[in-house]
């Protein structure tokens, strides 16, 4: 069997979706972990985002991480393109629809809405990257801050500025909710797709997936909310 045959088959395409999905999940763990350092402000009022700024600086200054960043972009783009191609193919498999649909009697609504949820996350990502990534990595228009003689971007102040507007908070909350539901199905589905078929592990992964999606989306959602209401910063 040729590689091309494998990766263009329905199972091969899903294999790519599952692998990139799991890779993006591992990225979320890093992202949410580093960003959660903004909550150090809650225990030390003099912190003022120092721990977060240093962590963000570390992520931008290490060569290995910058290489991984390229892999991350490749993973996201592959996940998006493959996802849309599969969605189009799957939709085209039924030209005449039903008058009465099975709906929630057979499956969870969010498992059927992965394309829609993914699209909302994509639109959110564009706004999110314009807010932070472009300013930090491309235009370098963030204010500087110095810790122990090392100058770096004051990402923390940028977060406070971005999260001072109500509509931004609304957009971020919508993004977090969509991510939560996308993960609630995607987490366990990805493991099934790459071939985990031991029921003991599958039921564990379902519950782990629910826990992960709630924890990650809640932590992410708390960040703009905490800054908007001045709990942090």
């Amino acid at each position: 069997m040729q590689w091309s045959e494998f990766f263009t088959s329905s199972v091969g395409k899903k294999f790519v979706m599952g692998l990139t999905g799991l890779f993006l999940i591992s990225f979320l763990v890093i992202h949410v972990g580093i960003n959660a350092t903004i909550f150090a402000d809650l225990v030390d009022p003099d912190e003022n985002g120092a721990m977060f700024n240093k962590a963000a600086h570390f992520m931008g200054s290490t060569v290995l991480i910058r290489i991984l960043e390229i892999g991350l972009f490749a993973g996201i783009i592959l996940h998006i393109v493959q996802g849309y191609m599969l969605e189009a193919k799957n939709r085209s498999a039924r030209s005449v629809g039903y008058a009465v649909n099975l709906g929630n009697r057979g499956s969870k609504w969010y498992s059927r809405a992965m394309g829609l949820l993914g699209t909302i996350i994509l639109l959110f990502l564009i706004i999110h990257m314009a807010h932070f990534w472009v300013k930090a990595r491309i235009t370098h228009t963030l204010a500087p801050v110095t810790y122990n003689g090392v100058e770096m971007h004051d990402m923390f102040s940028e977060m406070k500025a971005v999260f001072s507007e109500g509509w931004v908070i609304a957009v971020y909350l919508l993004g977090c909710i969509s991510l939560g539901y996308h993960l609630a199905h995607g987490f366990q589905s990805a493991f099934r797709t790459v071939g985990v078929h031991n029921n003991k592990y599958n039921s564990l992964l379902v519950n782990l997936g629910y826990g992960f999606s709630i924890l990650v989306s809640l932590l992410f959602a708390l960040m703009p909310v905490a800054m908007y209401f001045g709990w942090v910063g």
Partner: peptide, 8 residues
């Protein structure tokens, strides 16, 4: 179509 593990 391809499987998306909805369980229906």
């Amino acid at each position: 179509g391809a499987c998306t593990n909805t369980g229906a």
